[in-house]
Design a protein around this nucleic acid. Structure first.
Lengths: 233, 233
DNA sequence: TTTTCACCGATTGTATACAATTGGCTTCGC
DNA sequence: GCGAAGCCAATTGTATACAATCGGTGAAAA
């Protein structure tokens, strides 16, 4: 019961990170033997790691055929965001009701650090770090609902972060995103759960709109490339 | 890509059913070799099945120590119902917006069959069958959100059904439950998504209250039994 | 009597070999 | 030229053996 990891857990963790970061591309095949060659060990822990990735929806695995990194259409992403919107706005409402004053202070400090980070970066980016340094993660923790935490942070967030990476930055306008975060925290600090929920809904809806725009642009780029390749036929 | 199952999938499915039905009790240890003895095959597919159960939150698995069937406190169940309430009321709202007229008719027929079933049983029970014959399942299908379907039917429902089995019946008052279902369907048919959502919230909140009552009664029974065993000391 | 420590058998994690299945390639027929 | 059928190597699923870890038990110490 120590921090020692089994090899399968270690490989899972590293693979999940590689997938989220796009080092293994959507649609790419995961071959057991190739992963043995890459990570060492034997096929047994690799299989277990692949099955864990499947459980987290990061890969699609077909018996006897193998596993591929998941590749989601915009429609599928919309489904995910539709659910995320509901769960995270609920988390925000609960956080406003359940977070202690100390925890809220900690959240406010986190945003101050984020503000400094944006300034240092000259307003160019607002990259959400993982774990306790991530605004959204802290809100979900503040909901004090373990199952909610598990469903969002254990499942949905892998996919969401994967697509954030793919679209290169987490936010087009960092200062606007930070300001939205600040408004949300103000509502939480004021214990106004209804307002907190509404602001979070808007925030996530804006994220979806942003993501839709980018994926449509990518799709158009991809189409024009494809068209010029087909002209000879 | 046929309906043929791997052994690990088959064992997972049978184990999941056995857990949901209480044939394997909460807290009970799952030993790999014992399951090989019971289901045949070798340890490899059994391990895979156990990992799948873990992914569905039906077992708690500790590396090097083994897996036990999950045993949830009332507080943990409340967390689950809190999330279920949010997701399923959302599903209901979406169903009111997205179900076709034919699908709604199918749902109405389903409730008619349920009504006949209750009459045949002389008002004693309203047992929800699984899959397409389950009212809630049909609403979630009607939401047309695959991710929502996966999170509810792929994950949460296993646990919820497990505790339904444990509390012996799915409803204390079958005719009241049926009437609530009927009101929900009327709201969906009228495309009143707001009302549909509200009615579903109430319905699920009533389920939670019912479950809480039963678990508290079980706990009191368990305590009184425990006390009388300790009196000799 | 209670607590602590050491040992070891049982169980779980991994390595290796064998069995089963599929996708891709080639050939044949229309 | 296209579609269907057959073949087989590569890959995945499972079986078996070995390695690693932990929980339970018994003995010793306080």
């Amino acid at each position: 019961m120590s921090v020692a990891q089994t090899l399968s857990e270690k490989v899972f963790s590293e693979l999940a990170t590689a997938i989220v970061r796009g080092e293994i591309a959507p649609g790419e095949k995961l071959s057991e033997q190739a992963l043995v060659d890459r990570y060492g060990g034997s096929r047994a822990p690799i299989r277990e790691a692949i099955h864990k990735l499947e459980a987290r929806n990061l890969v699609i695995r077909v018996p006897h055929a193998g596993a591929r990194v998941v590749s989601l259409s915009l429609s599928e992403l919309r489904d995910i965001y539709e659910v995320r919107l509901e769960l995270e706005s609920m988390a925000c409402r609960l956080a406003a009701q359940r977070m202690s004053d100390e925890e809220i202070q900690g959240l406010q400090h986190l945003l101050q650090e984020h503000a400094r980070s944006i300034e240092a970066d000259q307003g160019m980016s607002y990259y959400q770090k993982s774990g306790n340094l991530d605004f959204h993660y802290r809100i979900i923790e503040g909901s004090k609902n373990h199952r909610l935490h598990q469903m969002l942070c254990g499942d949905l967030y892998h996919i969401i972060r994967m697509y954030r990476y793919r679209t290169s930055t987490s936010s087009e306008r960092p200062q606007l995103a930070l300001k939205e975060h600040q408004r949300i925290v103000e509502a939480i600090a004021a214990r106004d759960s209804e307002l907190a929920e509404l602001l979070m809904r808007r925030h996530i809806q804006a994220s979806l709109t942003n993501l839709e725009t980018r994926m449509t642009q990518e799709s158009l780029l991809s189409q024009s490339t494809h068209t010029s390749e087909e002209n000879p036929s």
